Amino acid sequence: MAIHNALTTQRILSIDALRGITILVMIFVNELAGVQGIPIWMKHMPADADAMTFVDMVFPAFLFIVGMSIPFAINNRLSKGDNMWQLQLHILVRTIGLLVLGVFMVNAEGGYNEQAMGMPIALWSLLFYAGVILVWNVYTFQSNVLRWVLRGIGLVLVVVLAYLYRGGEDGSQTMTPQWWGILGLIGWAYLITCIIYQLAGGRLLLVLSGLAVSIVFYIVGKSDATESSPVAAWMSGQTGHAIHTAIALCGVMVSLFFFDQKKKQETRVRFILAFVFAGILFGVGYILRPYYTISKIYATPTWALYSAAVCTLLFAFLYGLIDLRKVSGWTSFFKPAASNPLLTYIIPYIVYALMHLLHIHWPEQFYQGITGIIWSAVYAVIVMVIVVGLNRLKIRLQL
Rank of each mutant, 00 (worst) to 15 (best):
A299M: 06
Y319G: 03
T239L: 00
F258Q: 07
H244Q: 13
L288Y: 08
Q261C: 01
A225Y: 14
Q265C: 00
S209H: 02
M253Y: 02
A309C: 12
A278L: 05
A299R: 08
L211F: 15
A242E: 03
W234N: 04
G285S: 10
G283F: 09
D224N: 06
G202C: 09
I287W: 11
G237M: 08
I272N: 02
S223T: 07
I247W: 00
K296S: 04
S228I: 15
S307W: 03
V231K: 12
F259N: 10
M235N: 07
K222I: 05
L314N: 10
I280P: 01
A308M: 07
Q261T: 06
V207S: 01
S223I: 08
G237P: 02
F258N: 03
R289S: 10
I280Y: 02
E227C: 01
I247G: 00
G210F: 11
T293V: 07
Y298H: 15
D260C: 03
R270M: 08
L281D: 01
I297A: 15
D260M: 05
P290N: 02
L305R: 05
K264S: 10
A233W: 13
E266D: 13
P301Y: 07
G251N: 10
V310A: 11
L314T: 13
A246G: 08
L273E: 10
T302N: 02
G285E: 09
F217I: 04
S295L: 08
I297T: 09
G240S: 11
F277T: 00
L314F: 14
R268H: 06
S236G: 15
V231C: 13
Q261Y: 02
M253N: 09
A308P: 06
K262G: 12
G283H: 05
G240A: 13
V252P: 11
Y291P: 04
Y286D: 09
G237R: 13
A299K: 11
A242T: 06
R270S: 08
A309D: 06
G237A: 08
E266V: 03
C311G: 06
D260W: 03
E227T: 14
G283M: 09
Q265D: 10
Y306A: 05
G221Y: 03
V284K: 02
A246F: 03
Y292C: 03
M253D: 01
V254L: 15
I272W: 05
H244F: 04
L314G: 15
K296D: 09
A278Y: 06
L206H: 11
S307R: 02
